[in-house]
């Protein structure tokens, strides 16, 4: 068992400025915020888990408790068999952490110079970290910019460097906080490929928070959805899609205006509405029942199609739908 969280809770006391005018505003009150409430879950070795939820749902607070940055207000947590806060440094050798917004690389130095330092910090002799570094550099295609100072790297290049840095010491568990935020498609894909390879090849456990549904689809078999500090869903990705009645949307532009009623749709597709005086139509469909190609064939049979696009459900939508269906 890599992660065991039992009835994990964390609350904060937030100072609030009084609402009055003038000097009355100097008086401050305090309010307790429950960032995480009685969260229980376990993660087995080799699993890849997506930890998703809206902003402020308690994702980063949970991650801080798992990595030893924050003590739980109540409940138990063990990561890699250790207690995160009391055994923080021992734990740091067994896990890799990537914060999407903060760099762990040496900002003014060429990218390659960060790795000897990180290797030494993890007390690994060169004979151990060097081959690993070469392997990672090859997988992430770091070669062309290894000699560039970190501050001059593009976000995509830097994030590839960050992930390589987090994997250098062969951690049992890698925790990634929004690793793909703001990245271009190529960098995203290269990161995902590498993380997936890492898990398959070395049995590394992955836990990532993200806003990007395609991260989860590509990497995780299991998702944990948090809302308002509590776990709202824990299960396989397909299960989430079922619960949330996840649908893809096809947006079709016709050559000439068409009333919505004139569209004849196959089972599994629902007309959501028309825009631009009947030129643009939105059609939702369930990909398990109906393929995009079959839907398109049915639509083109009705009228001439000028343009079309497909949209995946995004995480915020999924989570929202999950709630409307659960309540």
């Amino acid at each position: 068992m890599i992660i065991e969280a039992e009835q994990l809770s964390r609350s904060f006391t937030v100072a609030e400025r009084g609402m009055g005018r003038g000097w009355a505003r100097l008086r401050r009150g305090a309010r307790t915020v429950h960032a995480v409430r009685e969260v229980s879950f376990t993660v087995e070795q080799g699993e890849a888990v997506g930890y998703i939820g809206a902003n402020g749902a308690g994702k980063s607070t949970t991650i801080k408790m798992l990595t030893g940055i924050l003590v739980p207000s109540s409940g138990q947590v063990r990561v890699c068999g250790l207690q995160p806060v009391p055994q923080r440094q021992a734990l740091a050798r067994k896990i890799g952490v990537v914060f999407g917004q903060r760099s762990q690389l040496w900002w003014d130095l060429p990218l390659e110079d960060s790795f000897p330092i990180l290797g030494a910090m993890h007390r690994q002799p060169e004979s151990r970290w060097r081959p690993r570094f070469q392997e990672l550099a090859e997988q992430m295609a770091l070669g062309p910019f290894l000699g560039t100072p970190v501050r001059q790297l593009s976000l995509g290049q830097r994030m590839r460097g960050e992930v390589a840095a987090a994997l250098l010491h062969r951690p049992e568990l890698v925790i990634l906080d929004e690793p793909t935020i703001g990245l271009d498609m190529i960098s995203k894909e290269s990161l995902r490929r590498c993380l997936d390879f890492e898990r398959r090849e070395h049995g590394t456990t992955l836990l990532l928070t993200t806003h990007d549904m395609s991260d989860v689809q590509r990497l995780c078999q299991r998702v944990l959805v948090v809302d308002d500090g509590a776990i709202a869903f824990d299960g396989p990705l397909t299960g989430l899609a079922e619960v949330a009645e996840a649908r893809r949307t096809m947006v079709v532009d016709f050559s000439s205006p068409l009333p919505g009623a004139a569209l004849v749709l196959p089972p599994g597709a629902v007309h959501l509405g028309a825009e631009a005086e009947g030129i643009r139509h939105r059609i939702a469909f369930d990909p398990r029942q109906l393929s995009a190609a079959a839907l398109l064939a049915a639509v083109t049979a009705t009228a001439e199609v000028a343009d079309l696009s497909l949209h995946e459900p995004d995480i915020e939508d999924l989570v929202r739908q999950l709630y409307t269906s659960a309540r």
């Binding site: 440094q89 000897p116 330092i117 007390r123 002799p125 004979s127």
Partner: peptide, 27 residues
């Protein structure tokens, strides 16, 4: 923090505190 001993090096010299410090400062 609990200090854990450095893992024994298989085929190369282990990372001593002095070596680590030198690396950090020179960086």
């Amino acid at each position: 923090e609990t200090k854990t001993a450095a893992p024994p090096a298989a085929d190369s010299s282990p990372v001593t505190n002095a070596k680590l410090l030198r690396l950090l400062v020179s960086a």
